[in-house]
Computed example of a mutant assay.
Amino acid sequence: MSRTALRLALRDWDHLVPLAAGRVGTPDFDLRIDSRDTTPDVLAEPGLDGGETSFSRYVQARAAGDDRLVGLPAFVMRGFRHRCVLVRSDSPRTALAELAGARVGLTGWPDSGNTWTRSLLRAEGVELAGVDWRVGPLVPGESGKERLGPRRPPPNVSVLHEGESLVDELAAGRLDAVLTPFMPPELFTRDSRFRHLLADHAAAERAYWEQHGFVPGIHLVTLRRETVDAAPELPGVLLAALEKSKRHWVARRRLLADTTPWLLRELTESAQLFGDDWMPYGTERNAGMIRTFCTELHQQGIWPDPIDPGVLFPDPALAAPAVQPEALTAR
C-alpha cells in the first residue's frame, strides 16, 4: 500500500491522543487529525477524508443504500445511557418506568444516544407513543444541530420554540425529565436544580452489562467512499491504528492514574468487570450491539423497515483489528 495522506475530523477523546500525537505508528499513511468541538459532517466538508459520525445517521444512510461513507466498527464514543436521564432535584420520580405518559425533553430525536436511552424506557414497559416528547437545545444559545433527522417524527414529538432550552423548561416544571448525552454545567454544582433520575445509575449500568454484554456505541469513525476506493486497504489499517491508540492510552492511564482523585479505583473496577477492553473494535465483538441498535431504530420508528446489520460493515478486514499483543505495553 502506497503512503496516503489522511485528514480526519474527530472530537477530543482521550483514547485518540496517542494517535493524534504520533505516539503510535501509522506507517502506511500521513495522518492529520482536526480537533472538533462538535460532531463533523464528513460529507459536507471539502478536504476531509473521514471523521466522527453518528452511528444512527450512518446506519440509516446505509439502510437507504447510501454508501458515500464507509464505516469502521471503531466506536470512539460509547457509554451506558442510564446516567443520561435528568429530573429536577425535587422530582418524586426515581425510576425509568415512572416516565410513562410524562413530558420528556431530548436533544435530538434520531440521535444514537437518545435511541439507546429510549430503549431503556421500552424495556421498562414505557410506551414511547404515550410520552410527550419535546426536542430542543440542552442549554440556551446552543445551535448548529439538526435535531429531527430526515424523516418526519411521530405526532407526539414537537420542537421547542426559539429561545427555549431543555434545562429552562425542566427547571420551570414544563418538562418532567430530560434525556441528554452531555450534562449541563449546573449538574456539577452543589446547589444544582437537577439530578439523575436513577440515584445509583452505575448499579443499573452494571446490571445492563450483565444482561446484554456490551456498552452501547454512539459514534463511530467513517471514511469517504472516494478515499477508500483510492486505497482499499485503508479501513483495516486505520482500524488497527485506532486500536493501538486505545491500548496505548489504557496502559498509560493505568500508570499515570492521578488525573482524577479516584481514577485508579475506577480503572481497577472496570478491568475486573469488563476485562481489558470495555470498548472493543471490530464487527466480531460488536455484533450483538450492532444488531440490537438496528432493531431499536426500526422498533422506535426511526427507520421504517427492518435493517440488515450485514450492510453496515461488509469489509472482512474489519472483523477485528490486526494488532499484535505488544501494543498493550505502555511506553
Rank of each mutant, 00 (worst) to 15 (best):
A97M: 11
W109Q: 02
D111Y: 08
R88C: 12
V85C: 09
T107S: 09
V85S: 05
W109C: 02
L106A: 03
H82R: 15
L96Q: 07
L86T: 03
L99R: 00
L106I: 01
G105R: 00
G108N: 07
W109S: 02
S91P: 11
L106T: 01
G101V: 01
P110M: 05
T94S: 15
G108M: 06
W109G: 01
D111N: 14
R88W: 09
V85I: 13
P92C: 14
A102M: 03
A95D: 15
H82N: 11
R83A: 14
A97F: 05
L96W: 02
A102R: 00
T107R: 07
R83F: 05
S91K: 10
V104S: 02
R93D: 11
A100K: 06
G101K: 03
D90W: 10
G108C: 09
L99Y: 00
S91H: 08
T94N: 15
A95N: 13
D90L: 11
R88F: 10
L86E: 03
S89M: 04
G101D: 03
G101R: 01
L86I: 06
T107Y: 06
G105A: 02
T94C: 13
A102P: 03
V104F: 03
V85H: 08
L96M: 14
L96R: 06
V87D: 05
R88T: 07
R83W: 10
G105F: 00
A95T: 15
D90M: 13
R83K: 15
G101M: 03
A100C: 12
D90Y: 09
A100W: 04
P92S: 13
S91I: 06
R83G: 08
G105V: 00
T107I: 07
A95G: 15
V104H: 04
L86K: 13
R93L: 15
H82E: 13
G108F: 04
V87P: 11
H82M: 07
